[in-house]
C-alpha cells in the first residue's frame, strides 16, 4: 500500500521521538524557515568548529514528514565535516527530486533513505526539505561570518 511506502516505520519513529529537538547553546547562527503553502516552520541553530559541524539543534512545528526529516538530518550532519554534511544534503535533495525512482546510497543517507516514498508526493517534498534548507542556510551564513572575521 502506498501510504506505508511514504510513512515508513523509521519516519514514524523519528516523528514520535525526534533527535536533537530543542534549541541549544552555543550556536553561530540561527535561521527561521517556513513552508508558505502549509505553515510548517523550523527554527534552527548551527555551531561550526573549523571544518566540522559541532552541533545542530532546532525547534519547529509541522507534519510528520517535516519533523522526522529534520530529526534524521541532525543525525547525518552533527559531528561530520561540513563537506560531508553538504554532500548528504545534495544527495537527499536529489532523492527528493527523483519522483520515487531514486536509488539512495545508504552509506551516505542512512535513515534518510526511508524518504524515497515521499518523493512520489510532490506536495510533500517541500516538507521533507524544510529542515535541510534551514541547515544549509544557517551553515552558509555561519561560514560567511567566519570568512568576514578572517
Amino acid at each position: 500500500m502506498k501510504l506505508d511506502e511514504m510513512y515508513q516505520e523509521i519516519i514514524l519513529d523519528h516523528y514520535r521521538h525526534p533527535h536533537n529537538k530543542g534549541l541549544r547553546d552555543p550556536f553561530d547562527t540561527q535561521v527561521h524557515h517556513v513552508n508558505p503553502t502549509c505553515g510548517d516552520e523550523v527554527t534552527l541553530r548551527v555551531k561550526l568548529d573549523g571544518e566540522k559541524v559541532l552541533d545542530v539543534s532546532y525547534e519547529g512545528q509541522g507534519c510528520s514528514i517535516s519533523q522526522a526529516s529534520a530529526s534524521v538530518m541532525t543525525d547525518l550532519v552533527i559531528g561530520h565535516t561540513i563537506e560531508d554534511a553538504m554532500h548528504a544534503g545534495d544527495e537527499f535533495l536529489a532523492l527528493m527530486q527523483s519522483k520515487g525512482q531514486g536509488e539512495p546510497d545508504e552509506e551516505v543517507l542512512e535513515d534518510a533513505v526511508a524518504f524515497v516514498g515521499v518523493s512520489k508526493y510532490p506536495a510533500r517534498v517541500k516538507c521533507a526539505l524544510l529542515g535541510w534548507m534551514a541547515f544549509k542556510d544557517a551553515t552558509a551564513q555561519a561560514l560567511q561570518t567566519t570568512e568576514g572575521q578572517k
Binding site: 501510504l3 511514504m6 503553502t37 502549509c38 509541522g62 507534519c63 510528520s64 514528514i65 508526493y121 510533500r124
Partner: peptide, 21 residues
C-alpha cells in the same frame, strides 16, 4: 496529528479535504 498527515491518509481513502492555513 498534523493536518498534512490527516489529509494524506484521508486522500488514500479517496477523501479530498484541504489542509494548511
Amino acid at each position: 496529528i498534523h493536518p498534512h498527515d490527516v489529509g494524506q491518509v484521508l486522500d488514500e481513502q479517496g477523501i479530498a479535504v484541504r489542509v494548511g492555513h
